[in-house]
Design a protein around this nucleic acid. Sequence first.
DNA 1: ATCTTACTACGAGGATCGTCGTATGTCAAC
DNA 2: GTTGACATACGACGATCCTCGTAGTAAGAT
Lengths: 129, 129
Amino acid sequence: MSTEHPPRPTDAELEILTVLWSRGPTTVRDVHETIAARRPTQYTTVLKQMQVMAEKGLVLRNEDQRAHIYEAARPREWTQKQLAGDILARAFNGSAKSLMMGALSSRKASKQELAELRALLDEYEKRTR
Amino acid sequence: MSTEHPPRPTDAELEILTVLWSRGPTTVRDVHETIAARRPTQYTTVLKQMQVMAEKGLVLRNEDQRAHIYEAARPREWTQKQLAGDILARAFNGSAKSLMMGALSSRKASKQELAELRALLDEYEKRTR
DNA sequence: ATCTTACTACGAGGATCGTCGTATGTCAAC
DNA sequence: GTTGACATACGACGATCCTCGTAGTAAGAT
């Protein structure tokens, strides 16, 4: 059993993980095309990045096909939990309230989003009571 | 007028900013002693770091005294807003709900903290209605 | 068979990060 | 005026990040 955590992803790595999470297991080409649609970048740059990520344990690679299939080693929620916990401890003194204040003040929140947040609190309280 | 944003602070820079925010304007010695109490580090390491931070615009430096006085260039809340907005966009698809889920799942939240979060939502809704 | 296309492997380079050692300056106390 | 304590300045080093070019390989099309 692996209790080994992959390291915190860097900015570029997180961008790639985001694609993998939404696309599911896929090829370098696919990831590159997605990223290149928003930002100019070379195919081999993405390739190299993903090779390094495989070494770090951030992604898994299936080499059965000629075009290797990559997938995120950890589910989105798992990594989000790590990142949230990390930033919470390092920048917000562990205060979830401060973090939420920062998030809300960084952009407008819709009425619906606020309702979702309330629902989340309800749910959390129910689950842990 | 400066609309110039200082860059996102690195991990080491954030640690120093945290000290400056809680201590207020102070010397390198003071910052170093605070950090060295938790983690072994050399005085000149902290000094160099803070010099670089001054160049980047992350801190302000008053050189009137022999021991320069440093202070954070931006208040804690301002930087927290940047960091929250940044992580929100890069790792959480802009979803405050996901961010909150990550934060809550990363460690236990007390009943009081949950109440604070509710109060924060109330307050936010009131202010923006 | 050769050509073309698509893929991986890999080295390398420039930038930034975090660290520290050393040089140098200042000031007070002896 | 020499010494010692304490401050800044600064260069340099190893590690990591991000980028890309080039080489090599596999497979299908002509």
